[in-house]
């Protein structure tokens, strides 16, 4: 994917993470911008199932050949599932950041935190400000 794209149905965190809300659970991943900046992802150092993740704090690392990036939790919650496919094939984060490249699924502790996140338009404007 040569061009950045930011789906309308997701919420975005300023550390370039996205959230997809599904009932009282949320799926986390990193944005197109983040994977592009990192380059080819080679390793996902994931948290354990049942681990607590805290909003605005790093919960995992993604590694490319020559960079390491903390992955931030947009929301507080408990890990209920990990994407084993990304552990096996980390390149999915590059090829399909919003689909097969999702990282983990959490049970949210505080849905009101969603209000602090950006929608696609706000995130795109935020990215424009960075460059």
């Amino acid at each position: 994917m040569a061009e950045g794209h930011y789906p309308e149905d997701l919420k975005y965190h300023r550390e370039h993470d996205w959230v997809r809300v599904e009932g009282d659970e949320a799926v986390f991943g990193i944005t197109w911008y983040a994977q592009d900046a990192l380059g080819e992802v080679v390793y996902f150092d994931a948290p354990d199932i049942d681990a607590a993740v805290e909003g605005d704090a790093p919960y995992a690392e993604l590694e490319s050949v020559k960079a390491v990036s903390d992955v931030y939790a947009p929301l507080t919650g408990t890990v209920v599932a990990l994407n084993d496919a990304v552990k096996e094939s980390p390149g999915l984060v590059n090829s399909d950041p919003y689909g097969d490249g999702w990282l983990l699924r959490v049970r949210m502790s505080d849905q009101s935190q969603l209000d602090g996140l950006m929608d696609a338009a706000a995130y795109t404007a935020y990215l424009d400000g960075l460059s």
């Binding site: 390793y43 590694e63 490319s64 050949v65 020559k66 960079a67 390491v68």
Partner: peptide
């Protein structure tokens, strides 16, 4: 496996 090393991970 260079992400282990000082030139990338620095203090970590």
């Amino acid at each position: 496996l260079q992400t282990r090393e000082q030139h990338i991970r620095r203090e970590k």
